[in-house]
Design a protein around this nucleic acid. Structure first.
Lengths: 185, 185
DNA sequence: CACGGTACTGACCGATCGGCCAGGTATCTG
DNA sequence: CAGATACCTGGCCGATCGGTCAGTACCGTG
């Protein structure tokens, strides 16, 4: 792993656990065994460092949204599976966006995250009218995302195998969303 | 409303939306139309200000947990209803604890929040063994709490009447938890 | 050997932070 | 009137922050 990628990994771990604002460039430098100035040699600013960490996950999310959009009709089953896989793939980035997105909305990359999440919620709001339906989707996707984000902190996960988590999340989302889907149709 | 309470309300709104770390005492003072030194006259430190804001909600949560504990057996229906009411009562505090709890765990009052949330998760983990059950509870409670926290940011709520939100959340939680309960029994 | 780019560093900068302190003012009480 | 108390203030402090810059060591290439 290049020094550049190593720094990105260190920063991601710190941003996700301690928070972006609470993680100083000095601390990242210490963990990497180099000087703060060296960190700023690899990444021209702290915001750019955050952007390089978060953007790959947002790119995937964007791709997913576009493909759903182009499909014309919403097929919940497909979306759910791809969404869960996306969350699991970018497991470390999820707490960053979920927990600190609101706070860091003035940082461009985090604003992008907010916009993407809003597009998802609007995507489903169009297909579901009642308050119950809206909240059902909110609880479903928010709950899955937040559970992944909070799992470590609250001791929820332990050492559960990922594929077991995956199938469990898929079943839960299916329970929550499929009755809603049938009600629309 | 006393000047003291007014300051607390202003700080709560800022902490919840912009974040604790990102909200300076100077900004709170500006919003209240007084000097930073005056804010520190009313609250001996920034951490104490946060504690005075968060502790009432945590006191209620503590009371709820103790009463569940003493009841011996878990009665999900009762807990769910009281939990939702608690979240709705302390609606503004929820995003603060949910989104910034992990980041601010070195602040005593936030550590208390983490411990209480962990007790809730353990309370239910004892009664439910499989990964699916664990995650079901995680998604349910995390989803409800996070939905309330993120509602404003993602434009999920709009101007939905509170009692409508309440009944919808109760139904969703019932759907998620009651099948689990029957499976245990 | 000389050279140019890459990686890295210490020293420094201005800004902002939470917090402290001496002192001012207004109101109430004896 | 004198004193006590509550409320508020400007000015200051040390610490830390993100970021800049001139300079250094190392490197493969001509």
């Amino acid at each position: 792993m290049s020094r550049h990628d190593e720094l990105r990994a260190i920063a991601l771990a710190e941003f996700a656990t301690a928070g972006f604002a609470a993680t100083s460039l000095q601390r990242i430098a210490d963990l990497a065994g180099m000087s703060k100035a060296s960190v700023l040699y690899h990444f021209e600013s702290k915001d750019r460092l955050l952007a390089e960490i978060v953007n790959p996950a947002l790119d995937d999310l964007d791709t997913l949204i576009v493909s759903i959009d182009q499909a014309g009709a919403l097929r919940h089953g497909d979306f759910v599976e791809r969404f869960v896989d996306l969350l699991l793939t970018h497991r470390q980035v999820v707490p960053l966006v979920i927990n600190q997105g609101a706070t860091l909305d003035d940082v461009p990359v985090m604003h992008r995250a907010t916009l993407l999440m809003r597009r998802i919620s609007e995507l489903f709001r169009l297909a579901s009218g009642s308050t119950l339906e809206k909240l059902r989707f909110g609880v479903a996707f928010g709950g899955v995302a937040y559970t992944l984000a909070a799992a470590e902190r609250l001791g929820l996960n332990g050492e559960i195998p990922i594929d077991e988590v995956r199938s469990a999340l898929l079943e839960i989302l299916h329970d929550l969303l499929v009755p809603a889907e049938s009600r629309i149709a």
